[in-house]
Deep mutational scan, measured.
Amino acid sequence: MSIQHFRVALIPFFAAFCLPVFAHPETLVKVKDAEDQLGARVGYIELDLNSGKILESFRPEERFPMMSTFKVLLCGAVLSRVDAGQEQLGRRIHYSQNDLVEYSPVTEKHLTDGMTVRELCSAAITMSDNTAANLLLTTIGGPKELTAFLHNMGDHVTRLDRWEPELNEAIPNDERDTTMPAAMATTLRKLLTGELLTLASRQQLIDWMEADKVAGPLLRSALPAGWFIADKSGAGERGSRGIIAALGPDGKPSRIVVIYTTGSQATMDERNRQIAEIGASLIKHW
């Protein structure tokens, strides 16, 4: 067993022997301040990774656009098919120029040779490549099948209805392509620590998230040296922004954090800054 596999296998073990965790309302004060600064709703939840206990939450059962955070769930569904012998990570998928959609920095470079399922998941999570996500959605049967996968996990809230990039439209009061912070946090925890996926697939999923290259201005910008984070960000229309993450000190994750916002007129930089400040408060009061 590799060191990384050992780390993920012992996530519940280490967490069980940690000192009790206590909620700190100071972080919620910052979440509410972010709402004021952005002029928009902000949803927040913080779960203990081992027990699933909610440590703090704000608007945990209000719907927010998922945006690209759905790509972690998508690759979880792909990995479940791999575990069941219905898919192979090494299978190569070929596609054409007509398949390319807006923001496809990886797939646009491989029109000639195609990409493997493993490479597509890596591109979808680490670079948020939209064509990679659409190609992977095709392998599982489309958005409705991802929703069905989530329902089978016990998540009857999260739903995907459309493809990239239309799913980022974020129309107010439109339930399409949305989740709730509580539902997303619980589902992410199941994917990373539950028995739904094999140990190898859980490790692969967290490795992809740990290698995320496009979430630097968010929670990662607030992390002290030595902290662990595996995350996936999302951005959408109407001032929408979000991030889902597993993080913790001492090089291992111990909490799940989900943050979503929508309806702001603020710039992307300002949305990023507010999420980073929430992260800084979380870490300060850990």
Rank of each mutant, 00 (worst) to 15 (best):
V117G: 08
L137I: 15
T27S: 01
G234M: 08
M180I: 02
E46R: 07
K53Q: 09
D99C: 03
G141P: 04
R189K: 07
E237N: 11
V82K: 15
S96Q: 00
T186S: 09
P181L: 03
A34G: 07
I54G: 05
T126Y: 01
A133D: 05
R241H: 07
G43F: 14
L192Q: 05
H24L: 09
D113T: 00
S51I: 02
I54P: 09
L199I: 08
H110N: 00
L247E: 03
G234L: 04
E87V: 05
L146H: 13
Q37F: 14
E46P: 06
R162Q: 06
D269M: 05
F228D: 12
D161E: 05
L55V: 12
R273M: 01
R92K: 02
G90D: 01
K232H: 09
W227D: 14
E166S: 08
R189N: 15
C75F: 09
Y44M: 03
L49C: 09
P165V: 05
K284R: 08
H151S: 08
L38P: 01
S96A: 00
Q265W: 13
A235K: 02
A225P: 10
S264R: 07
H24T: 08
R241W: 05
R189E: 14
L150E: 15
A266W: 06
G251C: 11
E164F: 00
H94M: 06
L188M: 07
P217M: 09
Q88C: 15
L120T: 14
Y95V: 05
Q204C: 03
V31P: 11
T138I: 07
E46L: 13
T27N: 08
R220H: 05
K144C: 07
Q274D: 11
L120F: 00
N272T: 02
P143Y: 06
G141W: 01
R81F: 01
L111C: 02
F70S: 06
G279A: 08
L136F: 14
A183W: 06
Q88Y: 08
T193R: 01
V258R: 05
T187Q: 11
E108F: 07
L79I: 00
T178I: 03
T147N: 10
E56L: 14
R59W: 06
G234V: 02
V214S: 15
E175W: 14
G251H: 05
V117Y: 01
V258Y: 13
R159L: 00
R238H: 06
A200E: 14
P25S: 03
L74P: 10
L73Q: 05
L197D: 07
S221Q: 08
D33R: 03
D231E: 12
S281M: 01
H285C: 01
Q88H: 12
D212M: 03
D207P: 05
D36R: 04
A200P: 13
V157C: 08
T267A: 12
A200I: 15
L55W: 08
K109D: 15
N130H: 15
I229P: 01
R202S: 07
A133Q: 01
V258C: 12
T138K: 14
R220D: 07
V29S: 04
G216E: 00
Q265E: 09
A124C: 11
Q88R: 12
M67G: 14
S233R: 08
L218T: 03
L100R: 12
S128D: 15
E164Q: 00
H24F: 08
R271D: 05
G242A: 06
T198P: 12
G263N: 14
E270R: 11
A222F: 14
S57N: 13
M66G: 03
G76W: 10
L146I: 15
I206T: 10
K32A: 07
E166Q: 12
E26W: 15
E102Q: 03
D129M: 00
N272R: 00
G43Q: 01
L192S: 10
L219Y: 02
H151M: 08
K213T: 09
N98F: 01
K109F: 03
D36E: 04
G251K: 09
H156G: 06
T267Q: 07
L150G: 13
L219P: 06
G279I: 13
P172I: 09
L146D: 08
L28C: 05
A185L: 05
S51N: 02
M180L: 07
D212W: 13
P60D: 09
P217Q: 11
G114V: 10
T131R: 04
A211F: 04
D33M: 01
G216C: 12
D250V: 03
N173K: 09
I259Q: 11
M115N: 15
V214L: 14
A200C: 13
G90V: 06
E237M: 12
K53I: 13
L47H: 09
G154H: 06
N272E: 00
V42C: 13
R220A: 03
P217D: 13
G234K: 00
A123N: 15
G52I: 11
E108K: 14
V257K: 06
E108V: 00
S233V: 09
E175N: 10
L79P: 10
H94T: 06
S233D: 02
R220S: 05
G194A: 09
L150A: 11
L73C: 11
I283G: 10
E46F: 11
L247R: 10
K213S: 03
T198V: 12
Q265C: 05
P224S: 07
R59Q: 03
A77P: 01
P165A: 03
